[in-house]
Amino acid sequence: MKVYNPKNIKEALTYLGGKDTHILAGGTDLIVRIKDRDIYPKSIVNIKMLHLDYIKINGDFIKVGALTSVETLYRSEIINTYAPVLSDAVGKMGSPQIRNLGTIGGNIANASPAADTVPPLFVLNAGITLKSRRGKRAVAIGEFFTGPGENIIERDEFITEVVFKKMESDEVWFFKKLGQRKALTIAKISLAFGGRLSGRKLNEVSIALGAVASTVIYAKRTADFLNSKRLTRDVIDVVSKIIQKEIEPITDIRSTVEYRRKMAGALLKQGLLDIMYSVIARQS
């Protein structure tokens, strides 16, 4: 196995393109897969020295370097203030040790249907920046994944940056994750919610679910139903049934179809009730 240690992006790109070339970012997935003999890389491109570890505010947007660790995201005031839905999700990832190594770019590139950063990035409608010797392109996160472990990254490309709009003060959000235990757990189901609230009326609703399909998915019909609806107990009861009909989960080692369906409804209901009650508390 050949290991390249490029000093800049331009140099890194010269090593990409070959079959069985893998990128080493945080290594928390790649090294385990090599140890498990799940993959046999011919070469590894170690991108640690590329200075892609940053969180910047750029006008209305937040730019996160692909090599930013999950722990850095978790402790970031910028993420906590402008992307709280992501902040909450990264706090529920792995363990402190894994969060220190694992990166946002790696979590996206591995394309796990249960990836914890991805449902919040769906709700934030994030753009993923890819670079290759051919140039640069940006892809919406909703169009990034094609199957479990599969995405639209070409062999000669890699992720350099994740960009999303700042959340504003009228936006409401929540992230829910169910697993076998609190730490070091892969989601049985996860749900990220975002929307705008005026009074008790919802708009621009976006709902993304993890671990209920071959990729993270939007629950579009459910979100559409909520748009311009006033949050009431009845609406919440109805929508928690709609989401159960919209998703098509499977039974696997982590959970069952029945549990995932029921919990999709329960998690949505729980989150929406919290929003409704906090609005009522504020108004009274």
């Binding site: 290991v3 240690n5 290594g27 090294i31 385990v32 170690n46 640690k48 190594l101």
Partner: peptide, 10 residues
């Protein structure tokens, strides 16, 4: 960090 997942090249 878990030292089992850090490689010499890093």
């Amino acid at each position: 960090v878990p030292s089992c997942l850090v490689l010499a090249c890093q």
